[in-house]
């Protein structure tokens, strides 16, 4: 993959006078792992929600693979190959782990106006779903109820569901939030394995992970892009150090 996968131009969103996204422009190259960082309340999740169509933008455009997706409803954006995970785990709690992934496989497998054959015995759904679970290391939990698995496993399930929609690009909203070091390590491995295969926009607070994984980093503060560049450039950027990194963590 090469060329620009996702192009954001002058995106703007405000809530009652407060700018959550302020004239954001950003290009993400195909195959790139692009990290989006910024302090709490910087508008990262708001941006992801606009990209995935769950929140309408006030102004601006989003071009995905040459197609204007700014005003598309969320489900069409997902079908166009742009998948997302949620910061606050969003799964089907009263279904099995495998059911969750199978649902995402089903969404890709054409319409669901099939009223008779049992979906839970449908190998065309279950087999691929199982493979996606294996990919994120959750295969042994396939038949557990989604609400019964651990927090870290639910985060992995989120990734499996996003992958199951066979996207070209993933929007991952803090996949490591609330994870212990061991779970984070597993998540970093998963993302390493996706590198190059999928374009990824990663929102993350764990700076070690961000600087270890990202090809490029964009820093968002108060809805505005204050810097964008390679990890080394971001590390060296005085604005970033002042506005963000200096206060929170020491990246070096």
């Amino acid at each position: 993959m090469s060329g620009v996968a996702l192009s954001i131009r002058n995106l703007h969103k405000s809530f009652g006078g407060v700018c959550a996204t302020d004239d954001v422009s950003l290009d993400i190259a195909g195959g790139e792992l692009h990290a989006l960082i910024g302090p709490n309340g910087a508008g990262k999740t708001t941006l992801i929600s606009q990209l995935s169509g769950l929140l309408p933008a006030d102004r601006g455009t989003v071009i995905f693979n040459g197609r204007d997706i700014t005003r598309l409803p969320a489900h069409e954006i997902a079908l166009a190959g742009l998948a997302r995970s949620f910061q606050i785990t969003s799964i089907f709690a009263d279904m099995s782990v495998l059911d969750n992934v199978a649902m995402a496989v089903q969404a890709q497998d054409g319409h669901s106006y099939r009223f008779w054959q049992p979906a839970r015995k449908d190998k065309r759904l279950r087999q691929p779903a199982m493979e996606f679970l294996q990919r994120v290391g959750l295969a042994d939990r396939a038949s557990s109820l989604a609400s019964a698995v651990s927090h870290g496993e639910r985060r992995q399930l989120e990734i499996a569901m996003a992958l199951a929609t066979t996207p070209q690009m993933l929007l991952l909203d803090e996949p490591m939030a609330g994870m212990g070091p061991e779970e984070s390590g597993r998540m970093i491995e998963i993302m390493q394995s996706l590198r190059g295969e999928k374009t990824i926009l990663l929102v993350e607070h764990d700076m070690d992970a961000v600087f270890a994984l990202a090809d490029r980093i964009t820093v968002l503060v108060y809805g505005r892009v204050i810097a964008s560049g390679s990890p080394a450039e971001i590390r060296a950027n005085a604005d970033v150090r002042r506005a963000y990194l200096g206060e929170e963590t020491d990246p070096c």
């Binding site: 995935s52 169509g53 769950l54 409803p73 969320a74 489900h75 069409e76 997902a78 079908l79 998948a83 997302r84 949620f86 969003s90 799964i91 089907f92 709690a93 009263d94 279904m95 649902m103 995402a104 969404a107 890709q108 669901s112 569901m161 199951a164 929609t165």
Partner: peptide
């Protein structure tokens, strides 16, 4: 799925 989590359904393309 729509009952359990409509937002998630939209995010996977339904």
């Amino acid at each position: 799925g729509a009952r359990a989590n409509e937002q998630r359904m939209r995010a996977i393309g339904i």
